[in-house]
Design a binder for these strands. Structure first.
Lengths: 193, 193
DNA sequence: CCCCTTAGGTTGACATCGTCAACTTAGCCT
DNA sequence: AGGCTAAGTTGACGATGTCAACCTAAGGGG
C-alpha cells in the first residue's frame, strides 16, 4: 500500500469514527505514522484529501451496486437491495455519507471524483431500467426516474440523520416511506380515491 | 432591535453572502459594531448562534408556507407554490438552506429549533392533505406522503447544489423531476405499460 | 444616598488548525 | 561521482473558537 493510500485510509477511519471535524491533517499524518505536515506531500489541501476519500468510497459503492445489478435476482428485489445499500451506508457511516452526497466542497472537486459518482449512479439507473422493462416501475426516461427515486431516498436519509423524521407520527421512517413510494409508482396500482 | 437580534441578522447576512465558513464569531461581532467576543454574551457558542439563525429562518419559511396554504387558490397550485418556495430558497440562499436542512449539528440543537422546523413542515403537510381531499394526490397517511414529497424535493435540491445533477442527459432538473413525481402519483394516471 | 449585584461589553491570552517556507535525505538518472 | 527530485521533517504564521479577567453603567434595597 502506497503512503498516499495509507493517508486516505487513515482519513477515512478518522472520518467514520469522529466525524468530519476529526479529520485533521495533523491527526491523519500522525495516524499514518508520519509528521504533522506529511499529507501535503501527497495532497494539495485538506479538501483534496477529502476528495480522495470520497473517490475511493464511491468506487466501493459502485462495486457493491454492480454486484447487486449483475446478480440473478428479480429486478424488484435488486431495487430493494440497492436502496438498502444506501440506507445502510448512511446509517453505518453517516459522516462518510455526508461527504459523498451532502458536501458542496467535495462536489466542487470535479474531475475524477465526479466520474466515480456518475459510475455509481449509472449502476442504480440500470437497475431502475430493468424494473421498468419488467413492468414494476412506470414508463419514463430511466435517468429521470432513477434521479427521482434516488433523491427521495437521499432526502429521507438526510432528514433521518438530522433528526427531522418523526416516526411517532405514523408511517414516516425511511424504509416504509420508500415502500410507499415504490408502491405508488407501481404501474399495477389501482387509481386511488 | 435587541443586540441579540442584531447579531443573528449579521450572522445570517454573512452566511448568505459568504457561506458557512464566513460566519466567524469575530466577523459577526464586528458586523454588529461590537468587539470580537461580544457574541458570547448572547450565545453560548458558534453553534448556538447558528441555531438561532436557523430558528428565525424556519419562522420565515413557516410564514411564507402559511400564506400559500391559506390562499384561495386550488390545492394543486398551492402544492406547486410550496415546492417552488423551497426550490427558490435553496437556489437563492444555498448556505442558509444547508444550515436548515443539511446540518446535523444544527439539528442537534433541539428544543425551540425543532419546534420551528415542525411548524414549517406542518404547513406543508396540510397542503398535501388538501390535495388528497381534492383527489390530486393518492390516499395515504398525509404525514408519510408529505415526508416523501418533501424529501424528494430536498434530495433533488441537494444533488443540484452538489452538482450531481446532469440536465444534459434528458430530463433531470429539479422542477421537471418534481412534475414527473406528482404526475406519477396522480390518482388519475393511466396504469403504464 | 450609597453600595452591591449583574448584564453587557472589552481586552488579552491560549490551543488548535490549515498552510507556507526552509531544510534534510534517500534514491535514481546521467 | 554528481546532482535532481520525491518524500519527509521542523518551525513558523495567521485565523479561529473559547476562556478568564477586567470594566462599567444601570438599578434596587438598606
Amino acid at each position: 500500500m502506497t503512503t498516499g493510500e495509507k493517508l486516505i485510509e487513515a482519513a477515512a477511519s478518522l472520518l467514520d469514527s469522529g466525524g468530519e471535524s476529526a479529520v485533521t491533517l495533523r491527526a491523519v499524518g500522525l495516524a499514518a505514522g508520519l509528521s504533522h505536515n506529511a499529507p501535503y506531500k501527497h495532497f494539495a489541501s485538506r479538501n483534496a484529501l477529502l476528495a480522495a476519500v470520497a473517490a475511493v468510497s464511491f468506487e466501493e459503492l459502485a462495486k457493491a451496486a454492480n454486484a447487486i445489478r449483475t446478480s440473478s435476482r428479480p429486478p424488484a428485489q435488486k431495487m430493494s437491495e440497492a436502496i438498502a445499500l444506501f440506507v445502510d451506508y448512511s446509517r453505518q457511516r453517516p459522516a462518510r455519507y455526508r461527504l459523498l452526497f451532502n458536501n458542496p466542497e467535495t462536489a466542487a472537486a470535479g474531475g475524477e471524483l465526479k466520474a466515480r459518482a456518475m459510475e455509481t449512479f449509472e449502476e442504480f439507473r440500470a437497475i431502475v431500467q430493468e424494473c421498468q422493462e419488467a413492468g414494476v416501475l412506470p414508463d419514463a426516461p430511466s435517468q429521470a426516474l432513477a434521479s427521482l427515486i434516488f433523491a427521495s431516498a437521499h432526502g429521507l436519509l438526510t432528514m433521518e440523520a438530522n433528526g427531522q423524521m418523526h416516526p411517532e407520527k405514523g408511517l414516516s421512517n425511511v424504509g416504509a416511506s420508500m415502500e410507499l413510494l415504490l408502491g405508488l409508482l407501481s404501474p399495477g396500482r389501482t387509481s386511488g380515491k
